[in-house]
């Protein structure tokens, strides 16, 4: 067993884990944060994307022990209480999800995309940036619209905060 301590959605958590425990298993099985999903074994589908120290990471390809000391944000920690994050709201508004299984990873990837590329992202860039997230339901059409709108909304929120 190995001990690991990290911050997950703002809370410090410590546990003794088998070293072969993946970060996604740690989140799902130890912390019961089941919003982060597993859709493949080869780091391709992106259903497991979480933020590690502010960057999108595939939690199925990261050992829990590798996240020692890191700050983890999962889909459960994205909303501000009952107020949805603008990207979450955009996915609902633009019907960017059907079965919902890839959705947490999509949203976490989209937020990371905006964090890196800003609020004005065009369709081609969004499609390219979604390379590591597979959706079988939507054909991506509405996901692209949602990310575009969510990016703009995140910018709006930022500007409001800056003005205040």
């Amino acid at each position: 067993m190995a001990s690991v301590t990290m911050t997950v959605n703002g809370k410090s958590v410590s546990a003794d884990v088998d070293p072969r425990t993946l970060l996604v298993q740690f989140l799902r099985e130890h912390l019961r944060l089941t919003g982060t999903h597993v859709g493949c074994d080869t780091s391709q589908c992106g259903a497991c994307v979480v933020h590690v120290d502010g960057k999108a990471v595939k939690a199925c390809t990261t050992l829990a022990v590798q996240a020692e000391g890191c700050d983890i944000l999962t889909i459960e920690g994205l909303a501000n209480g009952s107020e949805l994050h603008p990207m979450q709201a955009a996915f609902r508004e633009h019907h960017g999800l059907q079965c919902g299984y890839c959705t947490p990873g999509m949203i976490m990837t989209a937020v990371d995309m905006v964090n890196r590329l800003g609020h004005d992202i065009d369709e081609a860039t969004i499609r390219h940036e979604l390379e590591g997230n597979i959706c079988r339901c939507t054909g991506y059409h509405n996901i692209v619209l949602a990310v575009e709108a969510g990016a703009k909304a995140m910018g709006g929120a930022g500007m409001r905060e800056a003005a205040e």
């Binding site: 999903h37 979450q88 609902r92 299984y101 959705t103 949203i107």
Partner: peptide, 8 residues
């Protein structure tokens, strides 16, 4: 689904 509360 968008808040990670789906139950699969």
């Amino acid at each position: 689904f968008i808040t990670g509360k789906g139950r699969y």
